[in-house]
Amino acid sequence: MATINPCSGDLPGTFGDAMPFICDGAVVTAQVTLGGAALAIVLAAVAGLASTSHAWLVRAVARVYMEFFRGASVLVQLFWIFYAMPAITGYRLSPIFAGVLTLGLNLGAYGSEVVRGAIQAVPVPQREAGIALNFSTYQRMRRIILPQAFVAMVPPGTSLLIELLKATSLVSAISVADMTYQANVTVSSIGNQFTIFGIVMVIYFLMAQVITMVMRVVERRAATMVGRETPKRRPPQMAWTDPAPTSAGGGGKS
């Protein structure tokens, strides 16, 4: 039996009419997700490290960034950056750039909370042992704290990446041709809302599963690197709360 490319128009009925467009959109969704994730991870690392700094000014800057971008939703920030900011800066960002920028800034703020919590959850004696062994501050971070903290970052980070994937659908509101946008366009030309929105939801779901699977591999590798076993299953975590500190950070500090 010949294999059929699901993205070509060979499929019967609505599928054949819609799939080429939805696939184009899926590629854009994946691109925006990857771009947003790259920016978010960099910002989360920088702001997360800054928020554990000894200098109060550095901490304060990180804090302001984190509170500011967690204070309103992606959509509000997206509209502001795309529609309102041109009045101040004088030029308009391309929709896809505005989308990636907003997603990166917003999810980066949530991510920095994860990074901060994970660093603080590393037991204090680990840091003290580093001092006793005459490690420099950088070596202590790089060789002792971060490898352990990274293991704790992965599960809440996975939830955030799925939140990011879901939030990419909002860029359709500023006419980026992502999967949601293409679904709307296809519906307005050929109808059959049920099938098209159904397909799109299933694709989003599958993309989320791919993220989960990849991150599980990452977690297992990170855990093996610090000589730990990963628990088989863990309850899902909420993206907007600060999962790491509630269990370990709070107890560690008192």
Partner: peptide, 9 residues
């Protein structure tokens, strides 16, 4: 795992 926006649509 699916966007709120698509669910609203």
């Amino acid at each position: 795992s699916t966007p709120l926006l698509v669910q609203l649509f």
